[in-house]
C-alpha cells in the first residue's frame, strides 16, 4: 500500500490526481498539500513519511523546483522519490526537472484515461 503526497496549488488538479491514484490502487493513502510551503511543513511535521511525492512544477509562491531543492537539502527527506508534474510536455521542462534532481517526470494529460495510465505505471515503478 502506497502513501503518496500530492503537492499542487490548484485544488482541481489535486482532486483529479487523487481520483486517478485511487482508481489505480483502491486502498492507497493519498495526502495533499496546497503549495510548496504547506508540503514542507507537512513533511517536517512528522505526520507520516510518503513513499512518493507528486510535485507540481508551476506553482504560485514556492514553485516545484524550489520545493524540491528544500526536500533534497533535508537529511530526513532527501531520499523520498519525487516526481515533477507539469501540464507542459516540453522537452526543456523534462530536462530541467531531471537536472533539479527529480526522480521522474509526469505530464498532466488532458485526457483522463491517459493520465490514469501514466499514474498507474508510476506507482508500479515506485513500490511502497
Amino acid at each position: 500500500m502506497h502513501t503518496v503526497l500530492i503537492v499542487d496549488d490548484d485544488p482541481d488538479d489535486i482532486e483529479l490526481a487523487t481520483i486517478a491514484l485511487e482508481a489505480a490502487e483502491p486502498d492507497i493513502n493519498v495526502r495533499s498539500a496546497l503549495g510548496g510551503s504547506a508540503a514542507l511543513a507537512l513533511l517536517r511535521d512528522g505526520g507520516g513519511r510518503p513513499d512518493l511525492i507528486l510535485l507540481d512544477m508551476k506553482m504560485l509562491g514556492m514553485n516545484g523546483f524550489e520545493t524540491l531543492r528544500e526536500i533534497r537539502a533535508d537529511l530526513h527527506l532527501r531520499d523520498i522519490p519525487v516526481v515533477i508534474v507539469t501540464s507542459s510536455d516540453l522537452e526543456s521542462d523534462r530536462k530541467a526537472a531531471d537536472s533539479a534532481g527529480a526522480n521522474s517526470f509526469l505530464h498532466k494529460a488532458v485526457n483522463m484515461e491517459q493520465f490514469s495510465r501514466d499514474i498507474k505505471s508510476l506507482l508500479e515503478r515506485y513500490p511502497g
Binding site: 482541481d12 488538479d13 501540464s87
Partner: peptide, 17 residues
C-alpha cells in the same frame, strides 16, 4: 495555449469523472 490547458483539463477531467 499553455495556460488554456489547465482549465480545459479541469473541464475535461471532471466531465470524464
Amino acid at each position: 495555449s499553455h495556460d488554456l490547458r489547465a482549465p480545459l483539463r479541469t473541464i475535461s477531467g471532471f466531465a470524464d469523472i
